[in-house]
Computed example of a mutant assay.
Amino acid sequence: MPQKDEGAVHQEGGSAPPHGRRPYHAPQRTEAASKTRAAILDAATRLFLEHGYANVTVPQIAKLAGTAVPTVYASTGGKGAILTSLIEDGLQSTAAGETLALLRQTDVPREVLTAAAHGTRVDNEQHHRIVRVMVSAAHTDQHAAAALARANQAYREALAAVTQRLRELKALRPDLTPTRTTDILWFYLGHHCWHGLVVEQGWSWDTTEEWLAQQVAAALLSP
């Protein structure tokens, strides 16, 4: 037999029962939790870049984030979970979707590749710190290696859509298969190339985007 709801006891005299309890909303708590999570992820990223993923501890992350160790675990989990969160947040970028939409709107092959270069530039510019952490951590941590594999797979799937659009436009050199085309796109537009030219060689993002668009067009398009 169901128990009586103490919050809905009838008053004497036959009066109607009060309304049921309303759900408790705490927007301030939600906002505070969101800020705490962001502080933890930012602190972790900074420490991973400075000291290397393997050399960072959760207490160090908590200290830099200005919170307690149990709060870190409750909000984001351990180091592996933190890294996964960083990567998943990066994969939710809208740049890829916007780029794919642009690909469908143009019938000019060079414009397709210009859009692809710009879209990968935006993603890499926004997330290059996370990519650096992920690549370095993958050598020593299975969570990082798995996360890197997922991120690379999603990246290549987006480049495969570029390949498909170029095939629809019959713009590719006749000797190129779809797989080879996507491999070439990965070679020129993958995160390693952006990192090598911008971070390691000091090129500007604008210069790198323009040069890569030119190079990949020369490599893929029929004369």
Results as ranks from 00 to 15, higher is better:
140 T>G: 10
74 A>G: 07
67 T>S: 04
162 V>R: 00
165 R>V: 00
71 T>M: 08
156 R>I: 12
165 R>I: 00
154 A>T: 05
185 L>A: 00
94 T>K: 14
95 A>M: 08
98 E>A: 05
92 Q>K: 12
118 H>A: 06
127 H>L: 14
109 P>Q: 05
188 Y>K: 02
163 T>K: 02
79 K>H: 09
117 A>Y: 03
133 V>C: 12
140 T>L: 07
172 L>C: 08
127 H>S: 12
182 T>D: 09
161 A>H: 12
130 I>C: 08
167 R>G: 11
90 G>E: 09
152 N>S: 15
147 A>D: 12
74 A>H: 15
187 F>P: 08
81 A>C: 02
184 I>T: 05
97 G>M: 02
122 V>K: 05
92 Q>A: 14
129 R>N: 13
128 H>I: 03
114 T>S: 13
127 H>W: 15
177 T>E: 04
108 V>C: 11
189 L>K: 00
95 A>I: 00
127 H>Q: 13
82 I>H: 04
170 K>S: 15
90 G>P: 07
99 T>P: 00
130 I>Y: 04
172 L>R: 03
80 G>A: 02
109 P>Y: 04
83 L>D: 07
86 L>N: 10
156 R>A: 11
83 L>A: 05
99 T>W: 00
115 A>L: 01
99 T>I: 00
85 S>V: 01
74 A>V: 01
140 T>P: 02
104 R>L: 09
69 V>P: 06
96 A>N: 11
67 T>W: 02
144 A>D: 05
157 E>F: 02
83 L>C: 08
135 V>D: 13
165 R>L: 07
134 M>Y: 01
69 V>I: 10
86 L>Q: 11
